[in-house]
């Protein structure tokens, strides 16, 4: 490995715990937007919220847990791929409403 794993190369314990807390909060956001306990359909607004929350969670996992914050270009590529997939999926859902 070419990189030197100094302490600052990895996210600090504090940063990781903070990341986890935000991910938990976002998951509650997912549950609210996804109306987890209700048999219903989601409007375009809730679908959009779901999309954004999911994308944000993916971003946190990539940048903090997977430490891609050290290679921002790679993080951007992955985020683009995931956004592309989510856009296609969400559009297909919207088509058959």
């Amino acid at each position: 490995m070419s990189k030197t794993p100094t302490k600052s190369y990895y996210p600090s314990r504090r940063a990781l715990i903070l990341t986890w807390a935000v991910l938990m909060a976002l998951t509650i956001g997912t549950m609210l937007a996804g109306r987890v306990t209700t048999v219903t359909t989601l409007g375009p607004g809730l679908l959009a919220v779901l999309f954004l929350v999911t994308w944000a969670k993916a971003g946190l996992i990539l940048r903090q847990y997977l430490n891609l914050r050290t290679v921002p270009a790679a993080a951007d590529v992955m985020m683009f791929l995931i956004a592309l997939m989510l856009v296609v999926v969400t559009s297909l859902y919207m088509l058959a409403r």
Binding site: T30, A33, T41, L50, T54, I82, M85, Y93
Partner: peptide, 11 residues
């Protein structure tokens, strides 16, 4: 994290 909303929630 990607699977859950797509398979379980979007409707």
């Amino acid at each position: 994290v990607l699977l859950f909303p797509v398979v379980y929630l979007m409707r």
